[in-house]
Design a binder for these strands. Structure first.
Lengths: 149, 149
DNA sequence: TTTAATTCCTACTTTTATAGTCGGCTTTTT
DNA sequence: AAAAAGCCGACTATAAAAGTAGGAATTAAA
């Protein structure tokens, strides 16, 4: 039940982007360096986020990325589901059920998976990028040591 | 963020065992057949459950397994954590933190993972095997078609 | 007392997903 | 023209999951 690096790196990158790209756009290289992620790998992740409509890009020299919509309109759920697919613990309770399970609607354990999946979505959909930016700024103002993303 | 077959098969097997082993003990072969799981593979899973103190075994001919404690004292969380390890979405918020993360206590995204992990544990710890047995029996009495585990 | 049924144990194998790496093309600014 | 970016597809290495295989130990029943 672990999140892959896609989700972990992706959320970090998005928070980094949200914090550093106010009005301007920033190069992937800078995000990769700050968050200590392979730039080439991050490239693949941000391509997914771009196709999901969460970030936009400007090509060419001095190009880079910025959020496609304001941070208060992007939830952690949007980011994680874009990168990880459904967050349901088993396929038969995914939003878009693709599985071929004969026991679909009459299976006792399925109710357990459903409850878990619902709660996960509830949590991640209740947190926006703006919330995380606020956390970051508040913590870095209050404390003497540095907070990470 | 998917549960592995360990957790899925394990929970199914435990519910099957809870339903069929009232007073008696039942052979793994029967559970494997009913739940359509490789017997040899299930053997490995139940070994973990036995070591976790959730089931007990009787060896030899006519031997088999039964619950080590009453079904109302076994939660889904007990079973899943035994088989899957911590249900935390990332290591740094596991119960027994083993990870070496320099940003441990000053990382914004960590709060997200913590909330997810807490909710997952909340759900699975609130459901006992007895609850699932009840679900199963109620559904099979009410409906004309058969419910699965 | 042998046989059959069962749990127990260790090691091996196959498949799949993850987590990258590599190299080159395209676009845009300087 | 050159440099700095993003864009794209293919390849690779590692690890984990999911299962197989084979046999030893234990016990009930014939």
């Amino acid at each position: 039940m672990k999140l892959s690096t896609k989700g972990r790196y992706g959320l970090k990158a998005m928070v980094d982007l949200a914090i550093h790209s106010q009005d301007k756009h920033i190069a992937l290289r800078h995000i990769a360096e700050r968050q200590d992620i392979s730039e080439h790998y991050l490239e693949q992740l941000i391509a997914v986020l771009r196709k999901a409509g969460l970030v936009k890009s400007i090509r060419g020299a001095q190009g880079g990325y910025s959020l496609a919509v304001p941070p208060e309109e992007i939830t952690v759920g949007d980011i994680l589901r874009a990168l990880e697919g459904s967050l349901a613990p088993v396929d038969c309770v995914s939003e878009n059920v693709t599985t071929e399970c004969a026991e679909w609607d009459c299976c006792v354990t399925r109710t357990v998976w459903k409850k878990i999946g619902d709660k996960i979505n509830e949590v991640v959909d209740s947190i926006t990028l703006q919330d995380l930016i606020k956390d970051y700024e508040k913590l870095n103002n209050d404390k003497e040591y540095m907070y990470y993303i």
